[in-house]
Design a protein around this nucleic acid. Structure first.
Length: 273
DNA sequence: CCTATAGCCTGACGGC
DNA sequence: TGCCGTCAGGCTATAG
């Protein structure tokens, strides 16, 4: 699930729930989510000791990564959350509300708790001291919704590339935040077939694509990334086997791109390149 | 530079 | 019912 709109929704959720409270206790239940070569028990203990006694003070997002600043950011830095395919965060009071697949649990002084959960353990949790350094080390491109990521910047970053447009959209090194589902949504709105080579798009099509990138993600955020709230002409709720185009009614087709399943409307997204 | 594949994990679903 | 393969919205590493 978690692509840019989902992670942004979680960021806002954390902003209104988990900030400015003393973290009394931390339980790492799945040390494998911490990327380090240390022994699992050692990693878990180290993270618990690093966070306990501190508090979260602010949040930040880049692409699909969520950064949570610690009160003593100079010393402790930031906790980074990545959600893989199935991760999320839940803030709750009574322990009988503890979500399933709870991988890291934070106990706050106010009696509430925050769970980082991930059914499949494909996410990551770690503590870093430098957000910019982390982004660079991961090789992430600009966040798609960053105001400085302009049409000119997009054109420059894509200039000379020849890959399929869907692969480019999903490449976090080109730009950060778009995954399989939202790349399909963006291409649907832009009327572009997912296997189109990006260099086959003319200036007008590229500009349309750029605006749909921004608009689709913004719209999804305003819906808190909940497909049932999406505008009627969005592909999302129809994106399943047998689903039909919300605009023309044609049955959606599927094709593999970058080893992922792309859904598209054969009527409105004709292949050109 | 580009594409494809496997691996990391777990659960849901369809077929036998 | 049980077993098996396949697929699922993530990223990384590797090979051609």
């Amino acid at each position: 699930m978690p692509e840019l709109p989902d992670v942004e929704t979680m960021r806002r959720y954390l902003e209104t729930t988990a900030l400015h409270q003393a973290i009394e206790d931390v339980e790492v239940h799945a040390a494998g989510l911490i990327p380090s070569d240390e022994a699992p028990q050692r990693k878990a203990t180290r993270m618990e000791e690093t966070l306990e006694g501190h508090s979260f003070t602010s949040t930040r997002r880049h692409g699909k990564y969520l950064f949570v600043a610690l009160d003593d950011a100079d010393e402790c830095g930031f906790m980074v959350l990545h959600f893989g395919m199935t991760g999320g965060v839940t803030y709750f009071e009574a322990m009988d509300q503890e979500p399933e697949y709870d991988r890291v649990l934070f106990h706050f002084a106010n009696g509430h708790h925050l769970a980082y959960h991930a059914m499949r353990k494909l996410g990551r949790v770690e503590v870093i001291d430098d957000v910019e350094g982390f982004i660079e080390q991961k090789g992430l491109g600009p966040d798609v919704l960053d105001a400085e990521f302009s049409l000119a910047a997009f054109e420059a970053i894509v200039d000379g590339r020849r890959a399929m447009v869907k692969a480019i959209l999903m490449d976090q090194g080109t730009m950060a935040g778009i995954g399989n589902v939202y790349s399909d949504e963006i291409l649907f709105q832009a009327g572009i077939h997912p296997r189109t080579k990006i260099n086959a798009l003319d200036g007008e099509a590229l500009e349309e694509l750029f605006h749909e990138m921004k608009d689709v993600l913004q719209e999804a955020i305003s819906c808190e990334a909940r497909p049932e709230e999406f505008p009627r002409d969005f592909l999302g709720p129809h994106r399943h086997p047998g689903g039909s185009c919300p605009i023309c009614g044609a049955e959606l087709e599927r094709v593999k791109v970058s080893s992922r399943t792309a859904y598209y409307c054969p009527n409105r997204q004709r292949q050109k390149g």
